[in-house]
Simulated scan of single mutants.
Amino acid sequence: MHELPETIAVDVVLLPPGPIMDMAISANRTLLAGNPDGGIRLDREGCLPHISAAMFPARREDLPEIAAKVERITQHCSPMALTIDAVAKHRKNAGKTVSTFHILRGEILQLFHKTVMNKMTPYQAPSTGPSLFSGEASAPSVDCLARFPKTSAYERYSPHITLGFGDLPEIIPGIDFPIRFEVTKAALCHLGSHCTCRRVLATFDLGLRAHSSRSGAAGRR
Rank of each mutant, 00 (worst) to 15 (best):
A24Q: 10
A202V: 06
G174L: 03
L104T: 15
A88V: 09
T97I: 15
P126C: 07
V200Y: 09
L163R: 05
V12T: 14
S26E: 12
V12N: 05
R220C: 09
L82A: 02
H211C: 07
P130H: 10
D143T: 15
S99T: 06
P140A: 07
A137H: 01
E136R: 15
P79K: 01
T100G: 00
T203P: 02
A58K: 02
L191H: 10
P49K: 03
A218L: 11
E3P: 07
S99L: 11
V70K: 10
C189A: 11
A153R: 00
A202H: 09
L63S: 01
L201C: 09
G166R: 02
I8C: 14
P178S: 03
F133G: 07
G106T: 00
A210F: 11
A67W: 03
P19Q: 04
I66P: 09
P49M: 08
L188A: 06
D43H: 15
G106Q: 00
A86T: 13
G39F: 08
L132P: 00
A125H: 03
Q75P: 01
L104F: 05
A125C: 09
R60V: 02
R180T: 01
A67L: 07
F165K: 13
N35F: 05
A24M: 04
F112T: 15
H50S: 08
V70R: 05
A210P: 13
M120I: 13
P122F: 12
A139P: 07
E170M: 04
V200Q: 13
G34I: 11
S213N: 13
A9F: 08
E61D: 10
P36L: 07
Q124L: 12
Q124P: 04
E45S: 12
S215L: 15
Q75L: 13
L82E: 03
D167F: 02
S78N: 14
G207K: 08
H2Y: 11
G164Y: 14
Q110S: 13
I20Q: 02
N93T: 15
A68D: 13
P64A: 10
L188S: 11
A67Q: 05
H50T: 01
D85K: 10
Q110L: 09
G164F: 10
V183Q: 07
I161T: 04
G39D: 06
L4E: 01
A58Y: 01
S193M: 12
I51G: 03
Q110V: 02
A9N: 07
A24N: 09
K89R: 15
Q75G: 12
R147H: 13
T128P: 00
G18Y: 09
L104G: 10
S127C: 05
E6N: 09
A125T: 04
R60Y: 03
E107M: 04
H211Y: 05
N118T: 11
